[in-house]
Design a protein around this nucleic acid. Structure first.
Lengths: 239, 239
DNA sequence: CCAGAATTCAAACGAACGTTTAAGCGAAAG
DNA sequence: CTTTCGCTTAAACGTTCGTTTGAATTCTGG
């Protein structure tokens, strides 16, 4: 919490914390949280096994530190970018395309920043979305709450004719397609018949994704044929 | 593969295999593959620990059996439904809405079939998509290959103006939003400000999702401003 | 009814896990 | 030089994991 510059070198003997974070990020991304052992992390980082518990307290806290390191700046950047767009457009509301850009560009920047090793991080993040561990879910909720609320308000102004509940659904689908796409695994590369090279190009990926989601977001509201009430007991099934 | 009816009772003393499958499905869905122990499964099923290895061989084979039991019939039903729609519409190609219905209705039926306990299965499936374990990825590829190829061909006929590569992307996004939505965790319920009750209603969920994806699927092709070639080396980042 | 196959059972195996401990180390402060 | 403190290290802790074993039990066909 002090304002002093912490003299941690990247290759000096004091780089233990950073080495652990980098190795953990890479291994968590590759195998997931449960399937990654502290011994694999510390071996990969070239540090002692006990260093993780000394510097981070526990495996769970290490995982949260790995996420926080990149996620916190990224979400901060998203909000800042949205604020900037709003200032430029004022008093007119920002349109959906710009809002989506504010959502995607920081993620894209993270994906391209090879100097920070952030290339793998988005996959780890996408995977964390689907992890059932309570501490992960709680952590993501806390991290995202402010940013999502901010963007939902912006979308609400850009799409005033859309009911709030419908907007919640569509935002949910957007976050889904985004995180799933970023977490893309080998299995589904095969399904889509896309080469690994193409799917690893995060820039091209996000540029394809944005128009797709934009169309869904702006699609007209359809009146559901039946069971539109929340507890709809009607049947849709065949036979 | 034989046509004989297998005389396995659900509550008799011979129900061991079924009890294991049901308990495993529920626990795998709740905690994931790695975080679910065989002891938890056998305790929950009320059978001996060794029964899993006796009947299924290993934990991995049990997981595959859990998936196969529901996934195989569902994908078969999807293809059958698409074939039926094509026969009705012939020689006109089936439109996108019908194709999406053939993709979604069997999943919806599985979600509503409480008698089979299939209500939880879709969440397990959505989670399996994001699992990094090689045996899971390979298994899903094998299971989905035929069905996806069939549907991609149908979409190609419905959207003849869309380049094949772009269609592959959009199919990828659709599978992403679908699986993510089905795997919805508590963390993101909070984000979307949707009550658990609403997100647990798979029917309402899929009925909201379909129009959203339909709009994205049918959206006009935008010419990417730069880097549209597959190996695009252009820069998009700010600063 | 009885031989033989199929299934269940309690018990144990070795390995791997996250975490803790206490001694050892090097540099900065007194 | 001595003390102190941040950090590293090797070793061990207790627990849990998936799997295996061999005897007991139940089912099945002649």
């Amino acid at each position: 919490m002090s304002g002093k510059v912490i003299p941690i070198a990247r290759r000096g003997p004091r780089a233990t914390k950073l080495r652990i974070l980098d190795a953990a990020e890479s291994l968590f991304m590759e195998h997931g949280f449960e399937a990654t052992s502290l011994r694999a992390i510390t071996t990969d980082a070239g540090v002692n096994l006990a260093a993780v518990n000394y510097h981070f307290g526990s495996k769970e806290e290490l995982f949260q530190a790995v996420l926080t390191r990149r996620l916190d700046p990224m979400n901060r950047q998203r909000v800042a970018l949205l604020t900037e767009y709003e200032a430029v457009a004022a008093p007119t509301p920002v349109d959906c395309e710009k809002i989506l850009a504010a959502l995607f560009l920081p993620a894209l920047g993270l994906a391209r920043d090879r100097t920070q090793g952030g290339e793998n991080f988005l996959r780890l993040l996408g995977r964390a979305y689907a992890d059932p561990a309570p501490f992960i879910r709680q952590f993501l909720s806390d991290q995202y709450a402010v940013m999502i609320a901010r963007f939902k308000a912006a979308f609400g102004r850009a799409l005033p004719w859309l009911p709030k509940k419908e907007l919640s659904w569509r935002l949910h689908f957007i976050m889904g397609a985004l995180s799933y796409t970023l977490a893309a695994t080998d299995a589904l590369k095969l399904i889509a018949e896309l080469t690994p090279r193409q799917l690893n190009d995060d820039e091209a990926l996000l540029r394809r994704l944005a128009p797709f989601l934009l169309a869904g977001l702006q699609s007209p509201l359809v009146d559901l044929p039946e069971g539109a009430r929340d507890g709809g007991s009607t049947r849709l099934r065949k036979r």
